[in-house]
């Protein structure tokens, strides 16, 4: 399947489930009348950085919410370590989430808590560790993202890049197996972006994590991803290494990878005839 378009109706051959921490099969999800996913199939290999790319509005963030059980699919399965997320009971779901770290687009730091308390938050909620040990863990995590010196600061005092690094420190506080990044590069200056890019790769390798990065920043993603999925119209239209995608001749892949304004994803939102509308005959 690497570097090729996924068969429209076919289901990818089952692989050894031990290699994949997440297996998504025939996923359907609609919001109102709008179909977001229409038979999506996808696998996330363990210990690797997997990138999910696609044009804006294709439901990349929705996919993360489905993987974490925040919303439920209309049809299909999302197997994490062989267990279907949609069938988990509330308690199971919370236990599962303790093993996941998630970095939100805006960091989602708790604004009434300091940087230190934000990183300590999951530890305080889920463990009975003594304060000395919590302090040790928090400072270790903050050191890993280069913000040990900012431990006293409040979220309002942080720049966008710093907030995301603190959120990353919080996401790894509980030593998760899987970490999800939702558009981690949006709105960052080149230096902050470079820092986040390196951190994602470094954290993944140093801590033995599995990472899923949702983004549409082709260059940044290409530099760190082991495997990339390109999603459009509710399906995977291409997958493989970033190099495979660069060489892919499919029109939609070429449009996305080369940033072309028009193509299978049209520049114009569907509209009545331009001339008719200007003349007021569009009703």
């Amino acid at each position: 399947m690497q570097g090729t378009q996924e068969p429209a109706s076919g289901r990818p051959a089952d692989r050894d489930s031990n290699d994949n921490i997440i297996v998504i099969r025939d996923l359907h999800y609609s919001r109102g009348h709008h179909k977001i996913y229409d038979g999506l199939n996808l696998e996330v290999p363990r210990g690797r950085v997997t990138a999910i790319m696609g044009p804006s509005g294709t439901g990349k963030t929705t996919l993360l919410r489905l993987i974490t059980g925040q919303i439920l699919p209309d049809q299909g399965s999302i197997l994490v370590e062989g267990r279907d997320v949609a069938k988990m009971r509330r308690k199971e779901l919370y236990e599962y989430r303790k093993r996941i770290g998630m970095l939100f687009q805006n960091g989602a730091l708790l604004t009434d808590l300091s940087v230190y308390e934000n990183v300590a938050f999951p530890l305080r909620e889920h463990t009975d560790l003594p304060e000395r040990l919590i302090r040790h863990i928090v400072l270790t995590k903050l050191h890993a993202v280069g913000l040990r010196g900012a431990w006293r600061m409040m979220p309002a005092e942080l720049s966008g890049g710093m907030a995301r690094r603190v959120a990353l420190a919080r996401a790894i506080a509980m030593d998760p197996d899987l970490i999800l990044y939702d558009e981690p590069f949006v709105g960052l200056d080149p230096i902050s972006m470079g820092v986040i890019v390196r951190l994602i790769r470094r954290m993944n390798d140093a801590l033995g994590l599995t990472s899923i990065v949702v983004s549409h920043d082709v260059d940044e993603i290409s530099s760190i991803a082991d495997r990339t999925y390109l999603i459009s119209d509710g399906r995977v239209v291409a997958s493989g290494s970033p190099e495979d995608l660069q060489e892919n001749c499919s029109a939609v892949v070429m449009q996305f990878m080369n940033g072309m304004a028009d193509g299978p994803v049209p520049f114009h939102y569907p509209a009545p005839d331009y001339g008719e509308q200007l003349l007021g005959r569009d009703g």
């Binding site: 974490t68 303790k98 998630m102 708790l110």
Partner: peptide, 10 residues
Amino acid sequence: DQLSGMEMMA
């Protein structure tokens, strides 16, 4: 997303 963040931290 602070509430979603909490949900994600179980």
